[in-house]
Simulated scan of single mutants.
Amino acid sequence: MKFAVIGGTGLIGSQVVSILNAAGHEAVPHSKSTGVDVITGQGVDEAVAGADVVVNLTNSPTFDEASPAFFRTSMDNLLAAAHKGGTGHFVILSIVGVDQVPELDYYQAKTLQEALLVAGPVPYSIVRATQFMEFIDAVLTWTADADTVRLPATPIQSIAAKDVAQAVADVAMGSPLNGIRDVGGPEIFTLDELGRITLSHKGDKRTVVTDPTAGMFAAVKGDVLTDKNAHLAATRYSDWLA
């Protein structure tokens, strides 16, 4: 099969392309660096023409109130091109619990992206993943100073990016779900606990202070970012750190 992987040079996209090609398919990565702009529409028709499957892994450059406009425009352009080009399966990557955190602009934007896909003209699959292990370091910087890192006790089911990529590729190689597949890591930690584990592994002597008001994840209520019934990946956080 022929796959057009939009956002195919990024953290997940580049791995999806490698997995699909190793499986004997033809997967072509597309991004701004290859001349494809999902906002202006430049190169989009050409990128998806003749593709059996379109995998859209593009992401908004911001997480604020501008993010819904990115997803609306990009999805409108990609879905129109995929429909015109005869694509039979359109796949996106989203977030476990994304529709349960209306307080966050970015989560509202990703919920919009899902809704546009569901209402669109192409058979589809949505892969919802839990939080990436690769993003934990960035999260620690949001509310840190020289002595402390402040984090809420939000339950997190972190998953390795390589496992997310495999899940996306597996779904893309299958028949359209016309629904959602949740994937997550094998363990659930609170975010403050993950912070302590991470700092300890790095030999970082800063103290993690549990603060229910700290950072973006303070807006998350309960355990909506976890799913014990998700398809569980194998990589544990301690193994990933090692």
Rank of each mutant, 00 (worst) to 15 (best):
P155F: 03
D211S: 02
S94I: 07
L78T: 10
V55G: 06
A219V: 00
A161L: 10
L241N: 07
T226K: 13
Q15P: 01
D192Y: 01
V17G: 01
K228W: 01
T226L: 13
L117R: 00
Y237L: 03
T141Y: 06
S175L: 13
V54L: 08
G13T: 03
H83P: 00
L116P: 10
A115N: 15
Q113K: 01
S238W: 00
S14Q: 13
G195P: 03
W240Y: 15
L191S: 00
A69F: 09
V28T: 14
H231M: 11
I95F: 11
L199C: 05
Q131A: 12
A169Q: 01
A138Q: 11
A115T: 09
R181G: 04
E46G: 01
N77W: 14
Q166S: 07
D223H: 08
G88K: 14
T190W: 05
T130C: 07
E187V: 01
A138F: 10
L116Y: 11
S31H: 07
I6D: 02
L93T: 11
A49R: 15
V171D: 09
A233R: 02
F217D: 03
S31V: 06
L225A: 00
V209G: 05
Q166L: 08
L11S: 15
K32E: 08
W240A: 01
P186Q: 08
M216E: 14
S125K: 11
V91D: 06
E46R: 15
H201S: 12
A153E: 10
G43D: 05
E26L: 12
A144Q: 13
Q100I: 07
D170S: 13
S14T: 02
G120D: 08
K2I: 05
V5C: 09
H231D: 15
Y237K: 03
A66I: 01
V38H: 14
L104C: 09
S200D: 14
T87G: 09
T141S: 15
H30A: 05
D137S: 12
V54Y: 10
N77D: 12
V168N: 08
L104Y: 13
D192R: 08
A167R: 12
A51L: 06
M1L: 09
I188R: 06
R181I: 15
H201Y: 14
P102T: 02
K162M: 11
A219L: 04
A172V: 09
A219G: 02
E134Q: 14
D105R: 01
T73H: 10
